[in-house]
Design a protein around this nucleic acid. Structure first.
Lengths: 328, 328
DNA sequence: AATCTTTATGTAATCGATTACATTTTTACA
DNA sequence: TGTAAAAATGTAATCGATTACATAAAGATT
């Protein structure tokens, strides 16, 4: 009853050839005679044979699977990246082992160990912190970082051009009359947070826009901190007319504050990162800096595949341009 | 240079025992002498040995990985479920191979074949359609369905109590004075869509609430259809005061319509499924029927683990209760 | 102390593919 | 047609663990 799956041995017997030939056909080796190949293919089709990838992996030490470590799953930003990764990989015959790190370094380490044991051919990490020393335990297995860079670890990386994105948006706002900015940033330990801050500051500098240090606040990229900081800003004696928010989730929190406050905020303009669900409908939204998340994922997957294929070139950090969406 | 990883053989040599003993220690076999075990452990620690899971899998035909097939990743609803699954599985030493099906039956089939080849120990599917004939190709490998049931395939399943959730919410609305309902449903081929519709109708029936067939519209659970149907409803000659929306993404689309329309809708009350980001801030939201998504995922993972362990009991469909969140 | 259990350890086959090397078949060309 | 070269196929070892079975060591019993 329990149809134990057929093996090469069985196929070989049925086709009247050796297992080596079966393997050759399976791997498209050009030096099998067409007639033989055809005969084998027929047996394969008829018997419904499917190769045991585990056995193949043992022999070739290639699993055709790559690990992804992301801080969390319930996050459209990360998952858009994962979408790009998976799409690119599956077209090349790779599958994806997804792990959550809960933004904890210890968790991250644990997951990586597991991936190493499972012999993934490579790993894409969305780092949960700015430290990457523990990534070294992947040894020779290629690693590509995404969205954030880390210290103590060198590898390929793909992220968006945060500096330019911020810079352009702020200049554009100044062109439209912005003169007094509030800024809600993320943990400055994270590259993206720092780069966005730098872009913001540089644009202010270049346009001669004064900076009120009291309006420059830092959170942690999470919704609640966006809420709190927005509240703080809006309840300050003289709230700014323009507020730059460094990521979607803080924007979400900020929007929640504005909605909860329930009153209008005339003259308030918000500039924020990430074009995610409803962002363009959040109160007072004026400019959205959109990151090409799916493209970031695809690019990361491509870099990884190159490394897996054996590319030994210099590691590179790829920055993809953001785009600006003007509202109002 | 390239530290090829150590194998049991090497460990055995260093510890002066046989590979069998190493394996026994590795697997916690109680009949190795404590001193021996200790000695082996020491060598393992010192040599940094890590077992090759591929080799183990080949011999044991257990991969300690399970496949998940979901229609898409950029979807907080699905990903909350996946979060629950992953959390439960990782605590039991299993990892997750994530595949997207793009809601296409063909894609679904393709992914399942791949998972079969990779020898996953089991699979959790969030079906993309109401047909499940192709799930049969998993053969003996256990399958658990989540969120939706399908025809032509019997297996364990976990989903929320859609009927009860709808029913209770509608009754509650009627208690607060609702008398004329609009209804935005999903594809009636999907169990969840049908059950929610049934719950809605039953509650209307039981409370003697009249039903205007012109206000009962069906979409496809996607944002755009929510937008279109909401528009249709609100632009009809006499829009209803209460609108029941069958899922989050249609709710999102509906909210987008209301926000875009830009005017107030006094006396409009919305009842909708799924307590996802900002849902409680969408215009006119009155009752949210929250599904226990993470719990659904965990439960599915537990059922699957039981099957993997060899549980041969009758297949079961587990329904988890929803909860009601009253706003306004 | 001799013998019988019980317990610990070792030997070697095995899982299902791949592949270096050996062998056979086909082709090419004198 | 015979033989060298090229092409196709086969044989058997191998990847790194597990495990049935065999054997050795320790403990129990009288």
């Amino acid at each position: 009853m329990n149809k134990k799956s057929i093996t090469v041995k069985e196929v070989a017997a049925r086709a009247g050839v050796s297992t080596a030939t079966i393997s050759r056909v399976l791997n498209g080796d050009p030096k099998v005679r067409p007639e033989t190949a055809e005969k084998v293919q027929k047996v394969i089709k008829e018997s419904g044979y499917r190769m045991n990838q585990t056995a193949r992996s043992l022999k070739t030490s290639r699993t055709h699977s790559v690990g992804i470590v992301a801080p969390e799953f319930k996050n459209d930003f990360f998952m858009s990246i994962v979408t790009g990764i998976e799409e690119t990989l599956k077209n090349r015959g790779y599958s994806v082992i997804l792990c959550s790190s809960q933004e904890s370094t210890a968790e991250e380490k644990e997951r990586l160990k597991l991936l190493k044991e499972k012999n993934v051919d490579g790993t894409i990490i969305i780092p949960g912190s700015s430290s990457g020393k523990h990534f070294r335990l992947m040894g020779e297995t290629p690693v590509v970082l995404v969205d954030r860079l880390v210290r103590d670890f060198r590898s390929d990386a793909v992220l968006s051009d945060n500096f330019q994105g911020s810079y352009d948006a702020v200049r554009s706002a100044v062109d439209k009359g912005a003169a007094r900015f509030g800024f809600l940033g993320g943990d400055m330990d994270l590259t993206s947070a720092r780069e966005r801050y730098d872009g913001f500051m540089q644009a202010c500098g270049d346009t001669g826009t004064a900076i009120d240090r009291n309006l420059i606040l830092f959170g942690d990229y999470h919704e609640d901190s966006g809420y709190e900081l927005m509240k703080k800003l809006m309840e300050s004696p003289e709230p700014p007319g323009y507020i730059f928010i460094s990521n979607y989730f803080m924007h979400l929190g900020a929007a929640r504050y504005l909605l909860e406050a329930g009153r209008d905020f005339p003259g308030l303009h918000i500039i924020s990162f990430d074009d995610l669900p409803l962002a363009s409908f959040f109160p007072c939204i004026s400019i959205i800096i959109a990151q090409p998340m799916v493209a970031i994922g695809s690019k990361a997957a491509e870099l990884l595949l190159d490394r897996i294929k054996g590319d030994k070139g210099e590691v590179q950090t790829v920055r993809l341009p953001t785009s600006m969406r003007l509202l109002e």
